[in-house]
Amino acid sequence: MKLLTATIFKQLRMVSGRTQSELAKFAGVSLRTYQNWENGDTTPPFNTYVSLCVRLSIEPGRFIPSLSTLRKGGEQAGIQEIDNVDNGNSE
């Protein structure tokens, strides 16, 4: 699920219009740590994601794929669902 987490953080940044450096500062981590999250090299604590959403006034559930999507298609289906949110195609 590292790719899924990486996609969630990348989409959060893109939708917010912020840079990796800004989100790293908001999260209280180094730029490299944030980049590792977006690259899927490491996985941040879930509360970090929620805190960033609150700071950016973005609904935390916006980038979390549905359980039914994950059960049907796994991680890749979840990534596609998140990508659709950014394109305004969410169901």
Rank of each mutant, 00 (worst) to 15 (best):
T19D: 09
A6R: 09
W37T: 10
A27C: 11
I8K: 14
T19W: 06
D83E: 13
T5D: 02
S16R: 10
I58Y: 02
S90Y: 06
M14C: 02
V54D: 14
S68P: 00
L56W: 03
K2V: 01
R55Y: 04
G40Y: 06
V50H: 10
N89I: 00
E22D: 14
P45L: 10
P44T: 02
G40L: 01
Q11N: 10
V15L: 06
I64D: 00
V15P: 02
R55I: 01
V29F: 13
S57L: 04
F63E: 03
M1V: 12
G88I: 02
G17N: 14
S16Q: 09
S21D: 10
N89P: 00
G40H: 07
C53S: 09
T19G: 10
G78K: 01
L3Y: 13
P65I: 00
T42Y: 15
S51L: 03
Y34S: 05
G88E: 02
L12T: 12
G40I: 03
G28I: 13
E75W: 11
F63R: 08
Q80G: 00
S68I: 00
L23S: 15
E91V: 04
L12V: 08
N36G: 08
N87E: 15
P60A: 04
R13W: 11
E91I: 07
Q20V: 06
V54R: 15
Y34L: 01
G78C: 05
T69C: 08
T7H: 05
S66W: 04
G74M: 03
S30P: 14
K10A: 02
P65N: 01
V50L: 06
Y49S: 04
G61S: 11
S51D: 09
L67P: 04
E91G: 08
R18H: 11
